[in-house]
Design a protein around this nucleic acid. Structure first.
Length: 423
RNA sequence: GUGGCCGUAGCUCAUCAGGUAGAGCACCGGAUUGUGACUCCGGAGGUGGCGGGUUCGAGACCCGUCGGCCACCCCA
């Protein structure tokens, strides 16, 4: 097989799939706009250092999942594995942090992982970030905004909100030590992966899928016992906001996130309808990150949603959609002369009917084969030019969805006739 | 990085003690010398992922390799 193929895990999105992408993107755009969020467009490539310093040196993403390369100037660059780091870099660099900012962005992200359902090496996210608001009311706004999105997409019954607070870095540090102390005594009972994580990222053991490990955790120290007062208070305010808004959620004390910059509020929207990759949208607060990347101390919070997963979920949930048509009007012309006349006659028609899809048959072929294409296109009307029409200055208008109905129309009256027919 | 399943026509799949391939859909043409859908007739399209091995003979068996899917891991 010498044909060049796409890179593994980097998929083409074909014309029959792009309509659902466009519909999803449109819903998200108008929703974000209605909450006053502004779009920011960011580079796909950043200095490797940015991701190391924000995501964390010992995370899986940085250790083994980044597409990293040296450019011609011997600088280490990386295809972004997530969006927050670049967004934070931009707001610092561009001096946007004088006032609170509500921002969103979209585009491809890259992680070198084994592809599977709902996971690819190039995937697409829409990310939302809010800077400069320390109080948990912004946490609530972001969550309510996502809930509204699920409602408008018809996904409200397919997703669940999981919520937790992981405290500030000091309380998390104290908890980590307690957890490690507890688990080290029972190290031989841990599954292999968790034994490894015990030394690299012990908090991740909390959401291990291994049942024995989960059982072991029942008697482990609880993160909630180590939380700082502010985190506890903010979390209960957040829950209060959500309760008041009538939004249901599940507090999951074992929900932790894989990126180092998170603190306090973390949340995940999950579904059980996508196989193993059930997280459709996730995020949390990252109050120290701006400062850590060299900006003035500014609180931040954000989330990202996985577009592929949402598109998949929408197709799982959707009742069979009606077959979409490719055209409203299909133009048939047999012969060079007729093609020339038709091409010219259709231009004013496009002026008159800018919202309709007018597809002209090109490449020749018999009336029969062209009409066959017209039918397949799903068009309502076929406009037909042959020698007779050309001579008489007419066009034959054929209704394809009603039996045998066809009219001879003068080209001068074509626009009026067609717009009346399609009204 | 690990594991399981899979790789035959554009698509979905079949066939078979191992004797060099077939259907449906799609495509093209005809039945209608200028007219689609339904029907009928015909046609084109495959070095059976690739490379080795066993065999008189392999798409079928064995090994390797590449690719796909799903899961672990990780995460959106």
């Amino acid at each position: 097989m010498s044909n060049i193929r796409a890179i593994r895990g980097m998929n083409d999105i074909l014309p029959d799939e792009t309509p659902s992408w466009q519909a999803l993107e449109q819903s998200v755009r108008s929703l974000l706009s209605s909450y006053g969020y502004g779009e920011i467009r960011l580079p796909i490539v950043e200095r490797t250092e940015l991701f190391k310093r924000s995501i964390g040196e010992v995370t899986d993403i940085v250790e083994k999942e980044m597409y990293t390369f040296d450019d011609r100037n011997a600088e280490s660059l990386t295809l972004r594995p997530e969006g927050t780091a670049g967004c934070v870099r931009a707001v610092i660099q561009q001096g946007l942090l004088g006032t609170p900012q509500r921002l969103w962005y979209s585009g491809p992200m890259f992680r070198y992982e084994r592809p599977q359902k709902g996971r690819q090496r190039q995937f697409h996210q829409i990310g939302v970030e809010a800077f400069g608001i320390a109080s948990p009311d912004i946490d609530a706004e972001l969550i309510l905004l996502t809930a509204r999105l699920w409602r408008s997409l018809g996904l409200a019954d397919s997703v669940e909100l999981e919520l937790n607070t992981i405290g500030n870095s000091a309380s998390r540090q104290a908890y980590r030590e307690a957890l490690v102390a507890y688990l080290q005594q029972r190290e031989e009972q841990l599954d292999e992966d968790s034994q490894r994580r015990l030394h690299s990222n012990p908090l991740r053991i909390l959401d291990s899928k291994n049942p024995a490990t989960q059982a072991l955790l029942n008697d482990a120290p609880a993160l909630s016992d180590y939380l700082d007062d502010e985190s506890k208070q903010d979390f209960s305010s957040l829950c209060g906001f959500l309760d008041a808004a009538g939004l249901s959620y599940r507090v999951n004390p074992r929900l932790v996130r894989g990126l180092d910059y998170y603190n306090k509020t973390v949340f995940e929207w999950v579904t059980d309808r996508l196989g193993a990759q059930g997280t459709v949208c996730a995020g949390g607060r990252y109050d120290g990150l701006v400062e850590q990347l060299g900006g003035k101390a500014t609180p931040g919070i954000g989330f990202a949603m996985g577009m592929e997963r949402l598109v998949l979920l929408l197709s799982e949930v959707a009742q069979s959609q009606p077959a979409s048509s490719a055209a409203d009007i299909y133009v048939v012309a047999a012969g060079d002369e007729a093609t020339r006349v038709a091409l010219a006659a259709v231009e004013p028609l496009r002026d008159a009917l800018p919202k309709h899809r007018i597809v002209q048959h090109l490449g020749g072929g018999s009336f029969k084969s062209q009409l066959k294409k017209a039918d397949k296109s799903g068009a309502e009307l076929a406009l037909i030019w042959g020698d007779d029409e050309v001579l008489a200055g007419n066009c034959t208008v054929k209704f394809l969805r009603t039996a045998g109905d066809q009219h001879t129309v003068a080209v001068a009256e074509l626009a009026a006739f067609v717009s009346a027919a399609l009204a």
